[in-house]
Every structure is written in structure tokens, then in C-alpha cells.
Amino acid sequence: MTKKFVLGIYDDEDVLLQAIENVRAAGTKIYEVFSPYPIHGIDDVLGIKRSRLPIVAFFCGLFGMSFALWMQIWMLGFDWPMIIGGKPHIALPAFIPVTFELTVLCSAFGMVITFFIVTKLKPSLKVNVFDKRSTDDKYVMAIEVKEGVTDISALNNLLRSNGAIEVNEKEVTK
């Protein structure tokens, strides 16, 4: 299955941000914007919602903390109780380092695994590079062309009037 895209290529991030606002205000849906580095504020301009990954991190950290405390209390208090340095069997202050480490470990692994699942990233994923210059010094705005719905010439004029230095068409196999 091939999809057709119109690519607006920009050489200034401020012009790109203004163009995104104008293109969205014109009612055109932007497929994706590519840049050689992260641009501050582009998520808000594109209308991307805030990530819920911190919520996942909190619950994974809570699981890690609970597991660490349960594991230490069970092992040192009930399964194999030993008196070490005169401390009681369940010595919570002594459990803090292990609890902290497992909290951080579970939180980090939980976020990474959730990120890979949500974004459908996998080792065999084939990534389409719309324009190689987007990895070096240009910014690329990709707009999907739907047959019979999108007027390509009007889209070209819209992108050029909003500061695109170049407008190209590209077909991508998905």
C-alpha cells in the first residue's frame, strides 16, 4: 500500500512553527514534522497531547517499592530471620537503599517497555525517511494526500505562502 505525501521543506524553525499554526488554521491535517533536533514548543503548536508516561512511571515505581519492601520483610523477617548487627528482623531504615534502587529500576524499565509498546517500536521496524536533509539542517512538514479529497496545487501554494523554500511530492510504501 502506497501513500502520497506533500513535503514542505523549511530552513528556519521560527518560520516552521508559524507555518504549522497557519496550515492547521487552514484546516489541513499535518501528518508529521521532522527536524534535526527537538524544537521547544512544537508539541503545543501541533496539538499533541501531554504524555501519560509519567503516570506509568509512578505506578511502576510504586510496584518496585512495594515489591522491594515485601521481599526484604519476607526474607529477613519470616523466611530466614537473622539478627544482623543487633537490628530487629524488620528494620525499615536498613531497607531504604534496596527499596530506592528497585523503585528506580522498575520505574525505568516500566517506562521503556510501555514506550515501546505504545509506539509499536520493534527491531524489524522499517522507518521511512521523507527527506534526508531533515537529519542535517532542514525541517520537513509532511501532509498526507488523499485521492479525490486533497487539492495538491492549493496545498503547494499554502506551503509556499507560509515560508517553505521547497515543496515536493513523495510516495511511501507502508
Rank of each mutant, 00 (worst) to 15 (best):
L105V: 10
D131P: 06
S51F: 09
I42V: 10
R52L: 15
K132T: 02
V15A: 05
V23N: 00
P38Q: 05
K4E: 11
W74I: 12
D12S: 02
R24I: 06
G85V: 06
T150A: 10
F34V: 10
E21Q: 08
D43K: 11
W80L: 15
T173K: 00
M75K: 02
V129E: 07
D136K: 08
D151W: 04
K122L: 13
V172F: 01
F78G: 07
F5Q: 05
K146H: 05
L155V: 09
Y139T: 00
H89W: 03
M111G: 13
D14I: 06
K49D: 13
G85L: 03
I30Q: 02
W70S: 15
S51W: 14
I55P: 06
N22Y: 05
Q18P: 04
F130G: 11
T103P: 08
D151R: 04
G148D: 09
F115R: 04
T135L: 15
A19T: 04
M65N: 10
C106D: 04
G8I: 00
S35R: 05
V172Q: 01
V127N: 00
D43Y: 08
N157P: 15
F59T: 11
S153Q: 14
T103I: 07
N162E: 01
P36V: 07
R52N: 10
M141C: 09
G163S: 12
V149T: 02
L125A: 10
L53R: 09
V129H: 03
S51Q: 15
W74D: 14
E171C: 03
M75L: 07
G8M: 02
P81Y: 08
S107G: 14
K122V: 10
F63E: 10
T150C: 09
V145Y: 02
S134M: 12
G8W: 02
Y31T: 12
A94W: 11
S124C: 07
V118F: 09
N156Q: 04
T28D: 03
M65R: 07
F34N: 12
N156G: 03
L7T: 00
T2K: 06
T114Q: 12
K29P: 05
S153Y: 09
S107C: 14
T2R: 12
F78D: 04
D14W: 05
A108I: 15
I117S: 13
D14H: 08
I165C: 08
K174H: 05
L62K: 12
I39Q: 01
G163K: 06
L76V: 09
T173V: 03
M65Y: 11
R160F: 13
K122Y: 15
I90T: 14
F78W: 14
